[in-house]
């Protein structure tokens, strides 16, 4: 089976600093693929390269077999790669519903002229967008917050709203960058269930996460990065038993972090 996403030899340098060094990764469709590693391993950089926030210094990316290496971030988003951000990037002055509607922008067609004339087709499309946006809010459990400004939502709700915006168009690939950061244990458990439901809905997920219990519960495969290099890929159980992985984590103060989970 063709992998949904195939990264080959991805490198990324910042000046003299090598953040990623020839990383390979294959993500099978319909899976949740964890991306872990000690601090500074290059996880978020890798996610940014997949999302197209900046181009890789070398290597290639394929989505369903088609080369996307040269595409900019917005073009990749339109192809079905959506993401969330580690440090939450919502549109704070817009309602939760409208935030989710932005996620559906690429599916709409109405432009300036039809907005001015409010043609029936445009009104129908608006209704559809809003209905689907509401559905996405409902999916993540924010149905009651639709009318509130995103900037006034509680922290955990803002995390969920970002997922709703990214998931609303039912993307092929959803990149989650530490979605559990700052959540309390109850919220983290709910998030784990949400990620599983996203997979059931047919969206493949790449999950960067520090909370090991979230990763181990929900991931089908896990890739470990260390110092910008691919260290190991396998099932959660296999990864936990891999001596190289244990060594990498022991080598850093990330041990304390891993124990805390």
């Amino acid at each position: 089976m063709t992998p949904l996403l195939e990264a080959r030899g991805i490198a990324r340098r910042f000046g003299g600093l090598v953040a990623l060094d020839a990383v390979d990764m294959q993500v099978a469709p319909g899976t949740v693929h964890g991306l872990i590693g000690p601090n500074g391993a290059g996880k978020t950089t890798f996610l940014n390269v997949i999302a197209g926030a900046f181009p890789p210094s070398g290597g290639s990316l394929r989505l369903e077999g088609g080369d996307i290496t040269a595409l900019a971030g917005d073009a990749r988003a339109r192809l079905g790669i959506r993401r969330t951000f580690q440090n939450l990037k919502l549109f704070p002055e817009m309602t939760a519903l409208h935030n989710a509607a932005i996620g559906l922008h690429a599916d709409g067609r109405a432009g300036v002229l039809s907005a001015l004339l409010r043609l029936p087709a445009q009104r129908r499309e608006e209704r559809e967008i809003m209905a689907r946006a509401a559905e996405a809010l409902d999916f993540v459990g924010l149905a009651g917050q639709a009318g509130r400004l995103a900037g006034t939502l509680a922290y955990g709700h803002r995390r969920l709203l970002e997922i709703a915006r990214a998931f609303a168009p039912r993307p092929k690939l959803l990149l989650l960058d530490e979605p559990a950061a700052g959540l309390n244990p109850t919220e983290a458990v709910a998030l784990t269930a949400l990620i599983a439901r996203i997979r059931e809905a047919g969206t493949t997920v790449i999950l960067v996460e520090h909370h090991m219990d979230v990763v181990m519960t929900v991931c089908d495969r896990v890739t470990v990065l260390n110092y910008g290099k691919h260290l190991s890929t396998g099932t959660p159980a296999g990864i936990q038993a891999d001596p190289r992985v244990i060594e990498a984590y022991l080598g850093q103060d990330a041990l304390a972090e891993a124990l805390a989970c």
């Binding site: 917005d74 988003a77 959506r82 951000f85 990037k89 919502l90 704070p92 932005i102 690429a106």
Partner: peptide
Amino acid sequence: QDEDAARASGL
């Protein structure tokens, strides 16, 4: 409000 987030949403 946020150009990066807008781009990531395909705008």
